[in-house]
């Protein structure tokens, strides 16, 4: 794993340079340039099949890129001591796995310890805090398979938090959450960013509601069509390229100042 040389003023958690991913000659990602700093929320949006999950999995080292560079800050050392909390998209895991809520979150703590170690009171605290943050502490003895989709999602987010990460990667975390829960969840992310200083990458296919609280947005469909501030200024042609012509998510103003400033982020297609 390659590490970055960061200065103190700006901590870049991960930097992706000219990343390409191919599946059997089928190019899924091309020329991806992206970075995530600490204390910021980056949202990756795009249509289904646009390559969002693939990009995340490449960053996590679960897929071998065809080309390109992925570098992390010194503090990230996943696989040894997971500094990345990860919430996968697919529900590939067994929904009826015979564990309770606390067991699920404890798994993250066990993974962080030596194989000879048991969980101590500090670990218990971390587990309880993580459950409290997602508001699932009252369900800690509940059987995992008895929970609703949104509650399961929250428990899995608690599991990601129990890693004590520097960086969170969430793949479509709002799936299965209703409007109120979604709103609470977004506030939770803001809280994690502001209070703990986490860097967060969040995949979403719904740019309308995320753009209110995130710091930067990247529109992805094979390539990154826009990368910059979300404030009502994603160029309409970028949106069209990514989502198609019939989409009108965001109010767009061609004279938007932020947009002009951010044009260096914009990759011409």
């Amino acid at each position: 794993m390659k590490h970055l040389n960061n200065t103190d003023s700006e901590k870049i958690l991960v930097r992706v340079e000219d990343l390409w991913v191919k599946f059997n000659d089928h190019v899924v990602l091309k020329e991806i340039n992206l970075k995530l700093k600490s204390k910021e929320i980056l949202s990756i949006v795009g249509p289904n099949g646009g390559g969002k999950t693939t990009l995340i999995r490449a960053i996590l080292g679960l897929i071998k890129p065809y080309r390109g560079k992925i570098e992390f800050d010194q503090c990230i050392n996943y696989r040894k001591k997971g500094c990345i909390g990860y919430l996968p998209q697919r529900t590939q895991y067994d929904q009826n796995f015979p564990v309770n809520v606390e067991d699920v979150v404890s798994m993250s703590r066990y993974a962080q310890k030596g194989w000879w170690e048991k969980l101590n009171s500090e670990d218990k605290n971390i587990i309880f805090q993580a459950l409290e943050v997602v508001d699932m502490i009252d369900y800690r003895s509940e059987h995992f398979s008895n929970l609703s989709g949104g509650q399961k999602q929250r428990v899995l987010i608690a599991r990601a938090l129990a890693v004590k990460p520097e960086m969170l990667i969430l793949d479509e975390p709002s799936t299965g959450l209703d409007m109120v829960a979604q709103d609470n969840f977004y506030h939770l992310l803001v809280k994690l960013r502001d209070q703990i200083g986490l860097g967060i990458i969040m995949v979403s296919h719904d740019i309308g509601s995320v753009s209110l609280f995130i710091d930067r947005i990247a529109c992805l469909k094979v390539k990154i069509h826009y990368h910059g501030k979300p404030e009502n200024c994603i160029p309409s042609h970028a949106l069209e390229e990514v989502f198609g012509k019939n989409v009108n998510f965001l109010y767009h103003d061609k004279e938007c100042e932020t947009c002009k400033k951010n044009h260096d982020h914009f990759i011409k297609s």
Binding site: Y86, F97, M107, A111
Partner: peptide
């Protein structure tokens, strides 16, 4: 005795176990 919880994690969710430091 020593690897039970890691194997449990791995059995439950292989990918996340990998990311969280389970070999």
């Amino acid at each position: 005795l020593f690897f039970f919880n890691r194997i449990l994690f791995l059995t439950f969710d292989e990918e996340v176990a990998t990311i969280s430091g389970v070999s």
